[in-house]
């Protein structure tokens, strides 16, 4: 990162912290209009530094690794496809996956945040799925928190020398699950239960999302692994350019 870029990221982070401190906050996608305005603002503000860093990160890829842009576009497209597929689950309700694990593993969290918010805006405007007021909260859960876990797990797995396919599978699946844990937390913070407060609320929301999401997380893990396998077979030069393949 260049000095200027660093400054911009730090500035937005400071701004974000300052704005959060003002109202200390005691949440699949959260539906339009379902979060109190103050929460909408807070989550949006938390996303800011990640998005700013993401724009820089993508600009740098565009400038220095032109070839890798194809992979970035494919990772973005993967999010598009995966998050549009509603899949029936064991609980008798449908849910969809996030697809952000792939981008996180390949390009890191900030770039993923930008890809994720594009999809969320598309869905919020055209599909009344998620929403503009809850965009911040949804971006945080799907495009930042989940990818952060995927990315972290993938890095850790590489250090531990886990078999690569297993590592990718676990990172994507657990990142997907974590997205829904964060959503539950976000909803619970906005709607603490009368007896038991936020904690009791979290459990209730998790009860709705988690069982539905578990099998889908497995699917997401498998699909992400397949795409990575495809890329390893045909896109070695690009993978090396973005530092995914160091050892080869």
């Amino acid at each position: 990162m260049s000095k200027q870029e660093k400054q911009a990221v730090v500035l937005s982070a400071v701004l974000s912290l300052a704005l959060c401190g003002a109202t200390s906050a005691s949440a699949m996608h959260i539906m339009e209009g379902y979060l109190p305005p103050s929460f909408c603002v807070i989550w949006g503000v938390i996303c800011l530094p990640f998005l700013v860093a993401g724009v820089f990160s993508i600009r740098r890829i565009a400038k220095e690794q032109r070839k890798a842009m194809l992979l970035l576009a494919m990772a973005g497209a993967f999010v598009f496809v995966i998050s549009s597929l509603k899949i029936p689950s064991v609980t008798g309700s449908c849910s969809h996956m996030t697809g952000t694990g792939l981008a996180a593993i390949l390009f890191g969290v900030p770039a993923t945040a930008v890809l994720g918010i594009i999809v969320l805006v598309f869905q919020a405007i055209l599909l009344a799925h998620g929403g503009l007021t809850t965009l911040g909260a949804n971006t945080f859960s799907m495009a930042i928190a989940g990818p952060l876990v995927s990315w972290g797990l993938y890095r850790a797995g590489r250090k531990l020398n886990l078999p690569k396919k297993l590592n990718v599978f676990l990172a994507a699946a657990i990142g997907d699950l974590f997205t829904y844990c964060v959503t539950s937390l976000q909803l619970a913070m906005a709607y603490p239960s009368d007896n038991g407060g936020v904690a009791a609320s979290v459990v209730e929301f998790l009860g709705v999302f988690a069982p539905t999401q578990l099998p889908l997380a497995v699917i997401e893990g498998l699909l992400t692994m397949l795409v990575i396998m495809g890329m390893e077979a045909y896109a070695m030069p690009e993978l090396r350019a973005i530092g995914y393949m160091k050892e080869v």
Binding site: H29, V208, Q213
Partner: peptide, 14 residues
């Protein structure tokens, strides 16, 4: 089973 969206299940929980 209905296979409604889990987003809606979320709003019912609210």
């Amino acid at each position: 089973a209905e296979f409604g969206g889990s987003d809606d299940a979320g709003s019912q929980m609210v």
